[in-house]
Design a protein around this nucleic acid. Structure first.
Lengths: 138, 138
DNA sequence: CTTGAAGCTCTAGTGACTAGAGCACTTAGG
DNA sequence: CCTAAGTGCTCTAGTCACTAGAGCTTCAAG
């Protein structure tokens, strides 16, 4: 049996966050001891570990709820879990592409300040004017 | 003189968002007409354009407030604006790096489902277990 | 002059937490 | 057995950057 603090230490999820996950129905309600404190078993530990890892992989709590709901059935859940994972992968790839365009743009803007400061600063102007941009960002 | 709707169309910022920017003091309060409706001049248009572009570049509203506060002074603002832009660039690069690790991991997880479904689904297991990961993500 | 679009204010909701108040309970040492 | 520190409890409210909706007023075109 683990206390909420032990669970927190073991998984790296903060105590209020664990209570929050319980509140929104993501984490099953654990038993309580005589003094009304939460006591978790290995299943609670596993569930929280799953959530933590999926969160680190960028899944939304809603996705995670769906993934956890799949567990236990056979056959279809593979396809469905895979679909969710793939959609998350597409999402991540898209974010990378956008961020790369932003990095290009920010690099360009930063270089505007490089050549001394006689009559600089073009940085503010560049930030304000999309038509100066070399790439299509945003 | 522009109405809030015209400003919205011209900049691509939604009407409630413009009002929100005004509410938090990011956008100066415009004049009102006889019927209490907002009327903007070119300065309002420029300010909103600046905000929009900087938002697209990933700056927080707080950063943008700081950048807008710099405008008008000479000398130091270049250094300060450049500092903010560079810090944002570093931030973006960091996010790209992290997302790339996630993409690698998600690709690996997705492939677990490829070979038919006899005794698959490892996807849920992989999502739950960080020790199976090839890279350090999160 | 009518009608429909656009404007106004205000409140509340989103996601995923985080912070703080003000208690009760547990645990280790004496 | 007692005490003090630490941990736990619930509850409310705040974060960021909006978004949605109610219920009203004003504007612009025909």
């Amino acid at each position: 049996m683990f206390s909420i603090g032990q669970l927190s230490k073991a998984t790296g999820v903060k105590v209020p966050t664990i209570r929050y996950y319980e509140e929104i129905g993501l984490l099953p309600q654990p038993g309580r001891n005589a003094g009304n404190q939460r006591r978790y078993g290995q299943d609670g530990m596993d569930a929280l570990g799953f959530i933590k890892h999926a969160r680190d992989l960028g899944f939304s709590l809603e996705d995670i709820k769906a993934l956890m709901g799949l567990d236990g059935q056979l056959g279809e859940d593979c396809a469905e879990a895979d679909r969710i994972a793939r959609s998350q992968l597409a999402n991540v790839r898209d974010r990378i592409r956008k961020l790369e365009q932003l990095a290009t743009e920010l690099e360009r803007i930063s270089h505007l300040c490089d050549g001394g400061n006689g009559g600089c600063c073009k940085v503010l102007t560049a930030l304000g004017d999309h038509s100066q941009c070399a790439t299509e960002h945003g």
